[in-house]
Design a protein around this nucleic acid. Sequence first.
DNA 1: CCCTTCTCTTGACTCATTCCAGAAAAGCCG
DNA 2: CGGCTTTTCTGGAATGAGTCAAGAGAAGGG
Lengths: 147, 147
Amino acid sequence: MPTTDPADRLRAAGLRVTGPRLAVLSVLADRAHVDVETVRSAVYDQLGGVSTQAVYDVLRAFTAAGLVRRIEPAGSPALFETRTGDNHHHVVCRGCGAVADIDCVVGAAPCLDPSAVAPGFLVDEAEVTFWGMCASCQTENRERTTT
Amino acid sequence: MPTTDPADRLRAAGLRVTGPRLAVLSVLADRAHVDVETVRSAVYDQLGGVSTQAVYDVLRAFTAAGLVRRIEPAGSPALFETRTGDNHHHVVCRGCGAVADIDCVVGAAPCLDPSAVAPGFLVDEAEVTFWGMCASCQTENRERTTT
DNA sequence: CCCTTCTCTTGACTCATTCCAGAAAAGCCG
DNA sequence: CGGCTTTTCTGGAATGAGTCAAGAGAAGGG
């Protein structure tokens, strides 16, 4: 059974095993897309205390090690997710800011071919963000408009 | 002759014609992608003074009116561009942060079909950002590595 | 020309994120 | 199992983008 143990996953990534790191890892495992403040408070509850700084450091280390991916939808703070390496994309709700995953339609990265890129530009990733309205925000909007 | 005069374009959008607005408009016309600070200083030079606030207000009003589009590549401040309504995309250089336009491969918005969106989600736009290295950053990188 | 309404100015303030020591802990080595 | 090096965590201050608020000032309609 490969790298199921959180501590092993950290070691495999060349990172030291510490309380905060394990806690952050477990928080990320629970939820799909988490912002720093959510991580911080969850870790805080779990360990009885952490500094904001530690959370940022841990998340940066994880991102650099490829354990988590950092996404940053326009107009909202950074979010972190554990699905990495599969180049999937995101839908963001304009109403409530909810983020959901979308499997990549094409496959490997970059999943799109930028036809007319500036000459010499070497593209390694295509990031796709879909914008729209989630079901509940549509309902809410309609009600408010109709009323 | 349709909306060639800046002042007319403002009026057509239902906005009042003022010094700062005309100045911002001309700054945006000169460059493809501008951040707020660049706009502010250019307008400052042109008019002999503006408040940061006015620049933000003007840009927000323009964005709301559809005169400009606001883009926000992860890790950099907001940029504004005058190409609107043609749903084109962007390449961002990881080295220097330079942004260039890419014509949409597909055509109309949303230019991609999110196959497995959460049920009920109404998508209205697909925003594509290509990440990579521009020609000069590649060269610089190679030199630094080789040396 | 007057009045209403929208726009700018100034200045304080929030929020996310980073920088800066120094103290503490984890790993590695023998 | 100790000692040493390296990395990580703590606390606190600082930066930068962007927003809020209240009042002075201009644009436009009548």
